[in-house]
Each structure stands twice: as structure tokens, then as C-alpha cells.
Design a binder for these strands. Structure first.
Length: 924
RNA sequence: AGACCCGUAGCUCAGUUGGUUAGAGCGCUGCCUUGACAUGGCAGAGGUCAGCGGUUCAAAUCCGCUCGGGUCUACCA
């Protein structure tokens, strides 16, 4: 074995072996408990970012953990066609060649997208493999594969037939850049400094004017009313009169509506039903005319006076303000903060626009989805995300599902020449069902469905629905959904609604919500900030120049390039080292406490790379001492266990309990911490050291040596299985070398049984003995450290004061102590017997004395003792105060009081001894 | 405007139902190339648990308020 662990030497090879051997597939054991996770399908043309890395690592840990427990385990993998995002990428590529999608036409363009999908579609799945992810690749799906077409059509048609999908002319969020409607969720509101313009609107009868305030002057050309509050004394008498709308020749009514806030602005509101969601509703209530003044590009259309036709919306705004000002109708302009809606993909300012769209009537679906969480059929981890889910679900709006895109599931609806709509699974079915002969021309709806409509079917669509498959029976509902809070509404909510409706069961029983991966300063990672880390670079490493190159090419804002380059050179002067997959994964787990965002610090991953190396070297030691020896691999029983053996076995049981509890409650941070502590601080730091005196002792019996070797190798083998779900590669590599010596069999650690704690192996006696031993050794080390005695120098140790129990423990551990503490000899002094000038430490009632024979620095030793005494006195006072408080003694549980009393006695004894030692030193 | 989360060592974070002298990693200081590992070992420094008030025998932990940071939802033209 190499002296240091080299992850890149083994990772890809092991992955290949696993995949080719079919280890990722469900066992198919129908007697076993089923366990399944459906991957949140990443964008097919995407590449892996830290968020994926985090998410997939968590899923893989769960999957491997359950697979090792013998569950019939399925990790369903696949990718999403991601409508807008993908279309955008391909359009941008075409634009670089000077071609627009309209130049190509629909069919050709879609062909191009498929080509792009074939070319780049493998990127993310290849990267997923690098993470060691173990999904069943043979079942990989795509949200636009044939099966999904079938499922989507089925769902659309059924919902339509059940009256839950309808088509209607409504105001939608229109993206003027992509020329498509988008759902409320795809709109981001950004706060911006704007203006509030006050305009005078003259009354038709010439008796004066009203002043309206608006943030969007250009929409005034589409005004069809002015509204005031019905109880507003200022305007009450004007209700029913009309306004002569400036710049147009239209007369519009003054109406009364509660919606108007008398306090805001002037208390008069211009109403533009075709371009504002609130105005639209008011228009419905009052039967107002709707005048659409914008075209698909959000330029002014022919419904406005000639002067403004074809103008861009913001140019029109300026023009209209100028024109009204020229007419003396601009009363004032105030600064005003407002929220401006943007498309989440395009970044364009969204226009409320009147179009025909398809909608899902969500209320009835939402009711079921709410109930499922209320009655505990679905649990969120952490629980507080249920609030978020409820608040959105309870106030849900109908879902606009049509998109004016080309890439996606085309809506299964056809129109005849009169515009009558027919919905069906295919044109043939529609013709047959409605008796439409071949002479009647049918045209399919041009629109496609919102991406989330198909991904909403993910949990059952991937298992073969609408066919009633074995997989569906075995693996649905899935066990847990692992996802970020940012798509609870987009995806989780939609899956809940659609799955409950079509499967009459929940899609998953638990939703584990993880946080966002941020940079080490808590900033969101983004290309424009130049702080993006690529998981693959952390695995393989990357030199500085390549990293700078990567971060500064293809920037949307090239002017940031210099800043990013500087920042990158400062943060990673040596580039990024290769840490390996296991270290990366372990970093994610250690930071994955419930729900909160994680700040990714390269210092952490380095620490866990070192941890891998620690495991590697511990294994080297174990193998060096076991290979070629009888370690009980034949399961014979002629061995003897030392107290150290019994102790580490006992600690192992406790670790297994902790790790299992942590894994079962999604506390990957606690699991990783428990393993780290046990492996490094107990197994490596103590047990390996304790084993040396035994193995190197010529006088030790074969039975004892065998017991120690057996324990070394078997505990190691168990550790590997315990850690495997978190660090798959290093554990497999070492396990292969260890398995035979440990008496284990099998081709892969992946399919071994996950360790189960055995209560009979918990040995409190051994634990107490080793705890005592550690304290003595630490006491001696402390003296060495403080007194500057070289660790190599052998020193005598004198013990004084302790109990017969201490003497017993000493005899049991004498030889270990001598070796581990590097002692010359240990002598026991009867209490009261005079001791030489010594540096001292305490273990319970027992004093440790290290004779200093004139070397002692009286001042330093006194100071050290005084420090101890002061510390003790402080705590002593606290405990005494507590015990002198009758209320505490009366009311606190007996056990707590007893504990405090013991503590008091112990501290008093310790204080006395320290005081005495101080005196002895001072007398020198 | 509502709702939620967070504030613990210089940094990143544990601390599950109140009850050992509040822990870990990184960083820092000193010592050590001891035969698994310098990607290591040993020792050490460092915290009024954001602040105030309350409940309790007992509060980092429960309650209220304040300050600071973050997120989501809904929005007034």
C-alpha cells in the first residue's frame, strides 16, 4: 500500500466495476422491505454544480445505507427536458451562428435541440458517476421519452375530461423576451427605485379634474375607468360621471370600489384591466372594457393613437409623460419604491398580458395535498417547511400550464377551422371520438406544457405508469424525496397534487429539505460573482490558470473579469488540490445539519482528505501486523481478549448505535462526526497504540496476540462497512484487502450487511479501565508538556493516595502504562510516605508524581498548581452554593442532588491534595 | 405587511426532551522527523452562549421584547 491515500488511482476503476456488476440494481427480493428514492431530475443539458453534489451525496448515502440493510432498494435516475432553460441554450448557440429558431422552423429547431441533447446530455450523468452515485442506470428515464409522452397525455386528457383543465383568455405573466406565458412562480419581484407620476384627468363635463397617481404612465392609453373608494367624501359625488381620457378621444367612467385605498396617492386609481392583475379583477367586477395596448414584444400596438404605435414600452412611457406635461396635465412626480416583476430565466420585465392559455384548476387538487401533510401521510424534515407548504397551498392560484415554446410536451388539443377545441391522446382518437372525417382539417395546439407538468408525474411516470407495472407496485410511493426548499412549490407541491389524483396515494412519505450550498463567506455561488466551485475540480484538483480561465470565460458581464481574476488568485494561489470524492462527500455530510444553508470551506475538505489518509494508514498498520498471521479468520475460538480489545469492541457498539440513529433521522452531520471521533480519536489514537505493546511483546501468549489481531482487523472491517455509505471508494478499496483476514466473504462491500450493535458486547468494566488508563497517561503527558520533558525521555512515575481499585487497575495495566507513557518504572507510595520533589497531577483520589530531582522549576510548577486550584475553587464555590440552597435540595430530583454531592466531595479532595502538593513544592 | 430560520471560541459549526467544569474541525502558540500516518503526534491559549426581562431549585436550551443577519409569501395604483 502507498504511504498516502491516492483517491484518483482507484475511484473510477471501482465505479466501473460496480456498475458493470449490476450492484446498483434493486435486489428484487420481494420479501425484503422496499426502499426507493426518485432523483430530482437535473436538466439534461446541465452540468453538475455544488448543489447537485450535495443533494446526490445525501441520496447516495441513504441508498447505500438501505441497500446494505438488505432492503429492496431502487434509486431511480433520470433527467428533465427543462423547457425554457434548454430552448434558451440552443437558441443562444444558434444565435452565435446568426440563425434564429424562426429561420429554422419548428421541426428543424426541435431536431437541433435533440441533437444538442444527444451531445451534451451525458455530461451531468457522467459527473454523477464521479460522485460515486449508485442509481440503477439501467432504468434511466427522460421526461420527454416515449413513456413520458404517454403519461403526460393520459394526465392531460383525464384532467380535461374531469373538468380540471380549462382554456381561457386571462391575464398572464408574459415574458416579452421569450414570447411565452410563465407561471406566477417563475416571476421574481425585485425592488426598484421608480417614480409615482400624478396626472390630471379632466372631467368630461368640464367641471374640473381628478388627479390619479401611477407608476406606469404608458398604460394610461388602455385605461377604461378611474376608481375611487365608495365612502370617500372627496369623490363620492363624482361617482358615475365620466373622464375625458387625455391623449385619446375616449370617455371613461368614474367607478366606486372598496379595493381603493383612500390614504394612498390621491385616492383615485386609473384602471387598466388588460395590463394589471388588480385592475383586471376590478374590470371583471364592473364589466369594464379591456383594451390591450401591447403586442408580444411589449411594444405598443394599433389600439393606441397613431403617434405611439410601435413604440417600445419604456420609450412610450417617457413620451407620454412629456406629452401630458406639455398639456399641463402633469401635476407632480414623486420618487417611489416599487416591485418590478422579472422572468426568472430571461430577466426581462414581465407584462401582464391578455392571452388564451391552458390552466389547471388547482383548488380541488390542493385540498387533497394539504390533507396528506396534515394527517401525516407525508412528513417534512425539518418540520417547519410544512408551514411554507401550507401557506402556499391554502392560497393557491390556478396554474397556467401552456407555454409558447417549441421544446416540450405539445398540448394534446386540436382545433377545427372554427376554433373549436378537441382534446385527446392523438389526432386519430380525436377524429374517432368526435366523428370528424378526414375532410375536416385539424390543427394541433402550438403550445407546449410547463416543464413542471411532466416532472410532476416523476415518481410514478418513471415506474411505467399508466401501465400497471411490477416496479410501480414495488416502489411507489417512494420512501423519501431529497430536495431544496426552492422547489417546494414548483415541484413538491405539483407532485403531491398530481400523484394523489392519479395514484390515489402520496408520491413519497418523507420530504427531506436541504439548504443551499454557498461559498465560505455565505455568498450564493454564481458565475457573475466568480465564486463558483465545481465539485469535479474539488475531486480532481485544478491548477490556478485553468481555474481563472474557467471562472472568467463566457461571462455575461465581461467588465467583472478583472475583479474575479484577482479574487481567485488571492483565494487559491496554488489552485485547488485534488481531494477525492470521498473527502468531498464527507464534507457535505459534516455540514448537512437540518435545513440550513451550508458554507463550503475548502479548509473543511482538506481536513476530511486527511481523515481518509488516516484511515488508509491505520489500515496499513493493521495489515502489516495481521497479514501472514492467524487473526482468527477461520472463526476459531482459541483467542483471548485484553481489556483494550474489549474496550474498543464496546466503543464500536456505541458508535454503531449513534450512527444508525443519526442516519435514520437524516442527521448526516452527527453520523459523520460520530464516525470521525471513533475512528480517529479512539481507534487510531488509542486502540492502535494499545495494540503495539501486545504485538511487540515476546512474552505475550499466542492467544492474546491472536485476540488483538482479530480485534484489530475485525473492528477495522466493521468500520469500513459503517463508513461505506458516506465514503464508498476508500472503504471498498481497503475492504478488499481486509475481508479475508476478517473472516468476511463477498465480492463487494456495497452488498455487505450494515453493522448492527450487539448489546452483549458493551463492556462497562473495560470502558472504566481504559478511561482510567487514559487519564493516567494524559496526566503524565501533561506534566511532560508543561515541564518540557522530551517525550522520548524515560521517566519514573510514583503513585500515591489512590484506592485499592486504583491499585488493581494499575496491576492490570502496568506494562501498557510503562510503554505508552514512556516510563522507567512505576512505584506505589503509601499515603503519608515522603516523596521526592516532583511535578504532580491527579486522577481521582490518586496522585501522579514525576520526580524532578533538582530539575524542577519551582516557580513554574507552583504556578501550574495554583492555576488548577483557582479553577477548582471557582467551581467548588458554585456547587457549594447550590447545595446550600434548600430549595435546590428540596426540589431537584434526588439523582441530581446526589451527583452534585459526589462532585463536591471529589473536588474538595482534589483541592486538598493540590494544596498539599503546592506546599511540598514551596518547601523545596 | 405576514411567516419562518439564524446569532455559541478568530473562522465554520455541534450542543435531540432544561441538570458534569459548554464541545469539534480549521486557524493560532510551544514542543516532537518515536518503527501506520508531518495529509502526523503531544501539550496549550481562546467563549459574560447577541442584548434585556421573565418562568424555574436550575436556562446556551422554555417564554416575551429589543438589536443584528438571512429567506419565503403577498402587495397600494
Amino acid at each position: 500500500m502507498d504511504k498516502t491515500y491516492q483517491p484518483n488511482a482507484i475511484e473510477q476503476q471501482w465505479y466501473k466495476t460496480w456498475e458493470e456488476s449490476g450492484y446498483f440494481k434493486p435486489s428484487g427480493d420481494t420479501e425484503a422491505k422496499p426502499y426507493s428514492i426518485m432523483i430530482p431530475p437535473p436538466n439534461v443539458t446541465g452540468s453538475l454544480h455544488m448543489g447537485h453534489g450535495f443533494q446526490e451525496s445525501i441520496m447516495d448515502a441513504l441508498i447505500r445505507y438501505h441497500r446494505m440493510q438488505g432492503d429492496n432498494t431502487l434509486w431511480q435516475v433520470g433527467t428533465d427536458h427543462a423547457g425554457i432553460a434548454t430552448q434558451m441554450v440552443v437558441e443562444r448557440l444558434l444565435a452565435a451562428e446568426g440563425v434564429s429558431r424562426h429561420d429554422l422552423g419548428r421541426d428543424k429547431f426541435i431536431e437541433k435541440v435533440w441533437e444538442w441533447k444527444e451531445k451534451s446530455g451525458g455530461t451531468i450523468t457522467r459527473q454523477l458517476r464521479r460522485l460515486g452515485a449508485s442509481p440503477d442506470w439501467s432504468r434511466e428515464r427522460f421526461t420527454m421519452d416515449d413513456g413520458f409522452y404517454k403519461a403526460v397525455q393520459e394526465v392531460f386528457v383525464k384532467l380535461y375530461e374531469d373538468g380540471l383543465i380549462y382554456r381561457g383568455k386571462r391575464l398572464v405573466n408574459w415574458d416579452p423576451k421569450f414570447h411565452t406565458a410563465i407561471s406566477d412562480l417563475e416571476v421574481l419581484n425585485e425592488e426598484k427605485q421608480g417614480h409615482l407620476w400624478h396626472f390630471r384627468y379632466p372631467l368630461s363635463d368640464g367641471s374640473g379634474h381628478l388627479v390619479v397617481a401611477t407608476t406606469r404612465p404608458e398604460t394610461m392609453l388602455g385605461d377604461t375607468a378611474v376608481a375611487v373608494h365608495p365612502e370617500d367624501e372627496r369623490y363620492k359625488k363624482l361617482i358615475g360621471k365620466t373622464i375625458k381620457l387625455p391623449l385619446t378621444d375616449r370617455e371613461i367612467p368614474i367607478i366606486a370600489d372598496d379595493y381603493v385605498d383612500r390614504e394612498f396617492g390621491t385616492g383615485c386609481v386609473k384602471i387598466t384591466p388588460a395590463h394589471d392583475f388588480n385592475d383586471y379583477e376590478m374590470g371583471q367586477r364592473h364589466n369594464l372594457e379591456m383594451i390591450n395596448i401591447l403586442d408580444a414584444d411589449a411594444n405598443l400596438n394599433d389600439a393606441v393613437p397613431e403617434k405611439y404605435r410601435g413604440m417600445e414600452r419604456f420609450a412610450a412611457r417617457t413620451q407620454i409623460v412629456d406629452d401630458l406635461d406639455a398639456l399641463g396635465l402633469l401635476e407632480k412626480v414623486e420618487p417611489h419604491t416599487l416591485k418590478v416583476p422579472h422572468g426568472d430565466r430571461s430577466g426581462a420585465v414581465i407584462e401582464p398580458w391578455l392571452t388564451d392559455q391552458w390552466y389547471v384548476k388547482t383548488q380541488p387538487l390542493a385540498d387533497e395535498a394539504i390533507a396528506a401533510v396534515e394527517n401525516g401521510s407525508v412528513n417534512f424534515v425539518p418540520k417547519n417547511y410544512e408551514n411554507m407548504y401550507f401557506s402556499w397551498m391554502r392560497d393557491i392560484q390556478d396554474w397556467c400550464i401552456s407555454r409558447q415554446l417549441w421544446w416540450g410536451h405539445r398540448i394534446p388539443a386540436w382545433y377545427d377551422k372554427d376554433g373549436k377545441v378537441y382534446v385527446g391522446r392523438s389526432e386519430e382518437e380525436v377524429r374517432e371520438k368526435h366523428n370528424l372525417g378526414s375532410d375536416i382539417n385539424l390543427r394541433q395546439d402550438d403550445d407546449v406544457l410547463d416543464t413542471w407538468f411532466s416532472s410532476g408525474l416523476w415518481t410514478f411516470g418513471t415506474l411505467g405508469w399508466p401501465e400497471d407495472t411490477e416496479a410501480l407496485k414495488a416502489f411507489h410511493p417512494s420512501s423519501v424525496l431529497v430536495t431544496g426548499f426552492d422547489i417546494i412549490f414548483f415541484w413538491v407541491a405539483r407532485m403531491m397534487m398530481l400523484t394523489l389524483y392519479f395514484k390515489k396515494e402520496v408520491p413519497f412519505s418523507t420530504v427531506y429539505v436541504h439548504g443551499l450550498v454557498r461559498d465560505s463567506h455565505g455568498q450564493k455561488m454564481s458565475k457573475s460573482k466568480g465564486n463558483v466551485l465545481d465539485p469535479i475540480d474539488l475531486i480532481d484538483g485544478i491548477d490556478l490558470e485553468s481555474l481563472v480561465q474557467k471562472r472568467t470565460t463566457g461571462m455575461m458581464q465581461p467588465h467583472l473579469q478583472e475583479k474575479i481574476e484577482k479574487q481567485t488568485r488571492k483565494e487559491f494561489p496554488e489552485g485547488i488540490e485534488s481531494y477525492g470524492t470521498d473527502a468531498l462527500r464527507y464534507t457535505f455530510y459534516s455540514l448537512a445539519s437540518t435545513g440550513r444553508d451550508i458554507k463550503f470551506d475548502v479548509g473543511r475538505i482538506e481536513g476530511f482528505r486527511n481523515f481518509c489518509n488516516k484511515i488508509w494508514n491505520a489500515s496499513r498498520y493493521v495489515l502489516q501486523n495481521c497479514e501472514g498471521h492467524d487473526c482468527g479468520q477461520d472463526n476459531s475460538s482459541d483467542f483471548e481478549l485484553t481489556v483494550a480489545d474489549r474496550w474498543i469492541i464496546s466503543q464500536l457498539q456505541r458508535t454503531e448505535i449513534t450512527v444508525r440513529e443519526a442516519m435514520d433521522s437524516y442527521r448526516f452531520d452527527l453520523a459523520s462526526q460520530a464516525l470521525y471521533d471513533f475512528i480517529w480519536s479512539e481507534y487510531c489514537s488509542w486502540y492502535l497504540e494499545l495494540s503495539k505493546p501486545v504485538l511487540w511483546d515476546d512474552n505475550a501468549s499466542d492467544a492474546v496476540k491472536k485476540g488483538t489481531r482479530r480485534t484489530l482487523i475485525r473492528v477495522l472491517e466493521t468500520i469500513l462497512r459503517l463508513v461505506h455509505p458516506l465514503m464508498p471508494y476508500i472503504t471498498e478499496e481497503i475492504w478488499q484487502r481486509v475481508k479475508t483476514l476478517a473472516g468476511a466473504e463477498g465480492e463487494t462491500i456495497m452488498l455487505q450487511h450494515y453493522p448492527e450493535p450487539n448489546a452483549n458486547k458493551v463492556d462497562e468494566e473495560a470502558e472504566a479501565a481504559i478511561a482510567w488508563l487514559k487519564q493516567v497517561i494524559e496526566g503524565v503527558r501533561n506534566i511532560r508538556g508543561e515541564m518540557n520533558i522530551s517525550p522520548a525521555k524515560k521517566i519514573p512515575l510514583i503513585l500515591r493516595g489512590g484506592s485499592s481499585r486504583d491499585q488493581e487497575l494499575l496491576e492490570q495495566a502496568r506494562s501498557l502504562l510503562i510503554k505508552l507513557a514512556s516510563l522507567e518504572e512505576i512505584t506505589w507510595l503509601e499515603s503519608g510516605e515522603a516523596a521526592p520533589a516532583s511535578a504532580t497531577a491527579l486522577v481521582g483520589d490518586m496522585e501522579l508524581l514525576v520526580p524532578m530531582a533538582g530539575l524542577i522549576d519551582v516557580k513554574a510548577e507552583s504556578a501550574r498548581l495554583q492555576k488548577e486550584i483557582d479553577k477548582l475553587s471557582k467551581e467548588l464555590a458554585r456547587v457549594e452554593g447550590k447545595l446550600n440552597n434548600p430549595k435546590f435540595v428540596d426540589k431537584a430530583p434526588e439523582a441530581v442532588v446526589a451527583k452534585e454531592k459526589d462532585k463536591l466531595a471529589e473536588m474538595k479532595g482534589a483541592q486538598e491534595r493540590l494544596q498539599q502538593q503546592l506546599e511540598e513544592i514551596s518547601n523545596l
